[in-house]
C-alpha cells in the first residue's frame, strides 16, 4: 500500500481471519460431528471437540454398512457422481467447442438462426423448465439412466458463449498463416485452435465439473432406482426421516465426502479456475 498504517494492516488481517473462520465454521462442526457415535447427538447437546469414532464412521458410511436409506454404498454413489460430472463436462466441452468453432470461423446460411437457437438457452437453468424436461426425458425412456442424467444438463450455451469470446480474440492473420501453410479447417482446429485454447478449456473443465458434480434437483427427479443415485442428492434421502432420528454423524460424513472432490479440484487448480472464472465471465 502507499502509506504504512499499522492499525489498518491489523484490521485487514483481522477481518480476513474472521472471514475465513466464519466461512470454515460449518465445516469444522461437520468434521467434529463426523467423529462421534450417533448417540452423542441428543437434545440440547452437540459435541464440540473430536471424538474417537472417526475411522468407524467414515469406513461404514463409505462402504455402505451404515444405514442411510439408500441401497447402494457411498462409494458407488460417488462413482455415479463422477460419471455424471465427467459426462456433463466432456459433453459440454465437446458440443460447445465444435459449435463455437463453426459460428466464429465459418460463414454459412442460417448461421444467425443457429446462433440464436443455441444462445437462447444461455441463462435458462434446468430448474425453470423442470416439469416439461422431465416429461421429455420420460418420453425418451431415459429415466434412471446415465444419459438421462447427463444429456439434458448439456443443453446450455454458457460454454459455447465463452469459447466464442475466446475464439474471437484470435488474430485473423494466424488463420491466414495456417491457410498458407496448407492447414484446412480440421487441421487448424486440432493443430492451432485447441492448443491455443487449452487454458480456457482447462478452466472451463473445472467450472463444468463442479457444476455437474453439484447437480441436485435433476437427479432427484429422474432417478428412482438407487443404482443411479448421486452423492449430493442422496443427502435428501438421509434427511427424509423424523427429525429426531437423523443420524447426524453419518449425514456429515456423507456431506463431507460429497464436498471433497469438487473442493479439491478448486483448490488444486485454483490459479486456472480463478483465471477461467474471472476472465470468462467478464
Amino acid at each position: 500500500m502507499i502509506e504504512n498504517r499499522p492499525w489498518l494492516t491489523f484490521v485487514s488481517h483481522f477481518s480476513l481471519l474472521l472471514g475465513i473462520g466464519v466461512v470454515a465454521l460449518p465445516v469444522w462442526v461437520a468434521l467434529v460431528a463426523s467423529t462421534h457415535p450417533s448417540s452423542a447427538f441428543g437434545a440440547g447437546e452437540i459435541p464440540l471437540w473430536f471424538g474417537d469414532q472417526a475411522l468407524e464412521n467414515w469406513r461404514s458410511v463409505f462402504l455402505g454398512e451404515a444405514s442411510s436409506g439408500v441401497d447402494v454404498p457411498v462409494w458407488y454413489m460417488m462413482l455415479n457422481s463422477f460419471i455424471m460430472a465427467l459426462g456433463i463436462t466432456v459433453g459440454k466441452l465437446f458440443i460447445s467447442l465444435l459449435s463455437a468453432y463453426a459460428i466464429v470461423f465459418f460463414r454459412f446460411p442460417f448461421r444467425g438462426a443457429c446462433f440464436w437457437v443455441i444462445f437462447i438457452t444461455l441463462m435458462l437453468p434446468v430448474e425453470v423448465r423442470i416439469v416439461p424436461t422431465y416429461e421429455v426425458v420420460a418420453n425418451l425412456d431415459m429415466l434412471n439412466s446415465y444419459s438421462g442424467l447427463i444429456l439434458p444438463l448439456i443443453a446450455s450455451a454458457t460454454a459455447t458463449f465463452l469459447f466464442r469470446q475466446c475464439f474471437m480474440t484470435m488474430p485473423g492473420e494466424l488463420i491466414e498463416a495456417a491457410r498458407i501453410d496448407g492447414a484446412g479447417p480440421i487441421r487448424f482446429f486440432f493443430d492451432i485452435l485447441l492448443p491455443m485454447s487449452r487454458t480456457n478449456i482447462a478452466a472451463l473443465f473445472v467450472i463444468m465439473f463442479i457444476y455437474g458434480w453439484n447437480q441436485y434437483l435433476w437427479p432427484v427427479i429422474i432417478t428412482t432406482d438407487d443404482a443411479y443415485y448421486t452423492l449430493v442428492m442422496s443427502i435428501k434421502r438421509m434427511l427424509a426421516v423424523d427429525q429426531g432420528d437423523i443420524e447426524w454423524n453419518h449425514v456429515m460424513v456423507t456431506t463431507l465426502l460429497a464436498m471433497i472432490p469438487p473442493v479439491a479440484v478448486v483448490i488444486g487448480m485454483q490459479k486456472l479456475f480463478v483465471k477461467g472464472l474471472v476472465d470468462a465471465e467478464k
Partner: peptide
C-alpha cells in the same frame, strides 16, 4: 487455395503460432 499456389507470406505482426 493459398497452400496450392506455391507462395509464402510474411505478415506485419508475424502471425507465428504462439504454442509452437
Amino acid at each position: 487455395e493459398p497452400a496450392d499456389r506455391d507462395i509464402a507470406m510474411v505478415f506485419q505482426n508475424y502471425a507465428l503460432y504462439p504454442h509452437m
